[in-house]
Every structure is written in C-alpha cells, then in structure tokens.
C-alpha cells in the first residue's frame, strides 16, 4: 500500500511542478494546491498506513491508528486553504491592476514604477 501511495504522491508532485512552471497565474495556483495535497498525503504515508481502532484514551482495541499524522494534516489543510484563498484574491487583484495573468509579463525592474 505504501508503494501505491508513493506513486500517487510522486505523480502529484510531478503535476504540481509542471503546473507551477507554466506562465498562467491560475495554473500556478492549482499547482500549489496539488503540491500541498502531495505533502499532506506524504504525512499520512509517513505515519504508517495501519488499520486499527480510533485513538481514544481508555479504549480496549488491540491496535490503534496513529492520531498525530491526522492532526497534522488537518492543520496543514486549514493553512493551505487559507493561503490558497489569499493567493486567489491576490491573483485576481493583480489581474485587475496589472491587466495580465501571465507571470512572464509581471517581470520588471524596480525602475518601472
């Protein structure tokens, strides 16, 4: 199972890298989203994919799943949700102000302004 997850994560990172190398801002944002998905899956896999009861104190199950990766992922998801939302708003504002969503055209030296 870990092998499959490794492939999935690899494909996610690959796609994310490809998207982030493109010029359109929207694609880049989608790319960052995929990158964080990959990272979250990686945490889950690194914690070990075990089956077992819910990790509640005082239970009598034989094996427990590790609660920590799930807590980490939840936190990381919330953060990446916030950042992605901010990025989208920023991209929209930048599109209005600069009139382009092409990162190539956003290059510029400080002297332009």
């Amino acid at each position: 199972m870990e092998i499959v997850m490794a492939f999935v994560i690899g494909i996610l990172f690959m796609t994310a890298t490809y998207l982030m190398l493109s010029k359109s801002l929207l694609r880049i944002i989608v790319g960052t989203g995929l990158l964080s998905h990959g990272a979250h899956l990686l945490i889950l896999t690194m914690g070990g994919l075990k089956r077992g009861a819910a990790p509640i104190l005082g239970g009598n199950a034989e094996s427990y799943t590790d609660p920590l990766p799930q807590a980490l992922i939840l936190t990381a998801i919330v953060i990446s949700f916030g950042v992605t939302a901010f990025f989208l708003v920023l991209a929209y504002r930048a599109y209005q102000e600069l009139g382009t969503d092409n990162v190539e055209e956003m290059r510029g030296t400080q002297k332009d302004d």
Binding site: G82, A85, F86, L88, V89, Y92, Q96
Partner: peptide
Amino acid sequence: GVTMTIIQTIGED
C-alpha cells in the same frame, strides 16, 4: 467570517 470575507472580496466588484 474568513470564508465569507474572501468570497465577498472577490465577488463584490
């Protein structure tokens, strides 16, 4: 609050 602020910021104009 945060979600609606984001949506409104994009949606308002």
